[in-house]
Amino acid sequence: MNQAELDVVIEKHEKWLRDGYGERANLSYADLRRADLSGANLRRADLSGANLRGANLSYADLRRADLSGANLRRANLRGANLSYANLSYADLNWINWRDVVSLTVIAVQINTTRKNNQITYIKELEIWTTGCFQGTLEELKTSIENTHKDNEKLKAKYYRVIDFILQEEE
Rank of each mutant, 00 (worst) to 15 (best):
R34T: 08
D91T: 02
R78S: 06
W97K: 04
R64E: 12
T130Q: 07
T129E: 01
A90E: 12
E126P: 09
N86M: 08
K155R: 15
A60H: 15
L103W: 04
L77N: 06
D66I: 08
R44C: 02
L37A: 04
E11A: 12
E139Y: 14
R18H: 15
V9W: 13
L27V: 10
W16S: 01
I144F: 11
G69P: 01
I110Q: 09
K12H: 10
I110M: 07
E14S: 05
I119L: 06
Q3M: 07
R114L: 10
E124V: 14
Y59I: 02
G79A: 13
D99A: 10
D99K: 13
R43Q: 08
V100C: 03
L137M: 05
E23F: 08
S48L: 03
Y21V: 05
M1E: 11
Y89I: 00
L92R: 10
K157V: 12
V101H: 04
L37D: 03
R114Y: 09
R24L: 10
L137C: 04
A107M: 03
L67A: 03
G69Y: 09
L87H: 04
L57N: 04
F164Y: 15
D66A: 02
T104D: 09
A60T: 14
N26I: 00
S28I: 00
D31Q: 09
T120N: 04
I165S: 07
W128S: 06
R53N: 03
A75E: 05
A25C: 00
T136H: 06
F133E: 12
E14M: 02
A65D: 08
T147G: 12
Q167N: 11
C132W: 13
L137V: 12
R73F: 06
L37G: 05
G20Y: 06
N76E: 00
Q118E: 11
T113P: 00
T112S: 09
L103F: 06
L77E: 02
S102H: 13
T112Q: 13
D163Y: 12
R18W: 15
D91N: 06
A50T: 05
A156W: 15
D19V: 00
D7A: 00
L72Y: 09
